[in-house]
Amino acid sequence: MADQSIEPILAKSAASGAPAIAAPVVVAVAKSRRPRRLGHLLEQEHILAGALLAPTLVILTLFIAYPFVLGIWLAVSDKVVGRPGNFVGLQNFWVNLHDTIFLRAFQNTFVYTFIATILKLALGMGAALLLNHHFRFKRIVRAGMLLPWIVPTVLSTLAWQWMFDATFSVFNWVLINVGLISQRILWLGDGTMAMGCLILVNVWRGMPFFAITLLAGLQTVNPDLHEAAEIDGANAWQRFWRVTLPLIKPIMLVVVLFSMIATFGDFQLIYVLTRGGPYSSTHVFGTYAYEIAMRAAKLGQGASISLFLFPFLLMVIVFQLWYIRRSD
């Protein structure tokens, strides 16, 4: 899809390149009499690069690098809201590892991430294969598919919460009226069910991202390869496993890693749907850190919980960088 939008420009600049470029150059020459010490400096590539990168580096230093260092300091301090903190070493981490809610959150984070990612990959691949057919209204269907991904997660999650309502759940209404159940199901009533619902909503929201990016991958697969495999006697299943999959493996891997990081650091979906409940059974790192830091005002303790995201994140990033280098 990237190629689609780029090709016309290249074609245009190739066809009408000369006039398009000539016009600015006239301006350039006309302006060249101004005093231009700064201009001279900016002719040097490394100085120009410094100037161009400065705004980005200032913002990233102030709002990512500095908070990161500050976060490490908070994690080893006993800071609470409204009072300066003292250094307490690894006490916060020790407290975390003896906190049953934290340990549950730890487990939940991994369960949530892995199950949701596997389901999103499987269903997203299925959706991509469907969308790779030719059919009427294909463009509209593809655009509509992405809606769960586009709209604010908080707002769509509220709709799900209403659908899971203890009394007025639409799923219960249907199941009771069809006669499958006689008692209402409490969808968010216990930890396991609630975790299942969280994963369901996460899959609903994230699957389109897989579908659309994998579809872009599928569209790069040369149809001749499929024809050749078919002539050699491969059935549809074999063609998928032996031809398509190896070819789109790189993009698949990147999509999975991106999604894993986002799911691992998720906050809003869980906070809106269950707020970590019932009885703190569905917390993940993100929501529990929020609970401790913002609700209980223990900033140091909360920061130490957030930091547990870091080792996993680091592993994924290192793997991804290694993979990019290797494929370059």
Binding site: T56, L60, L62, F63, I64, Y66, P67, F68, L70, G71, L74, F258, I261, A262, F264, G265, D266, F267, F285, G286, A289, Y290, A293, L299, G302, A303, S306, L307, L309, F310, L313, V316, I317, Q320, L321
Partner: peptide
């Protein structure tokens, strides 16, 4: 810059509140 692209807001929101 690629690494900062992957940092989830959940990791930084507490210290960022102080900033």
């Amino acid at each position: 810059i690629f690494i900062t692209y992957l940092v989830p807001p959940t990791l930084l929101f507490i210290p960022l509140g102080d900033v």
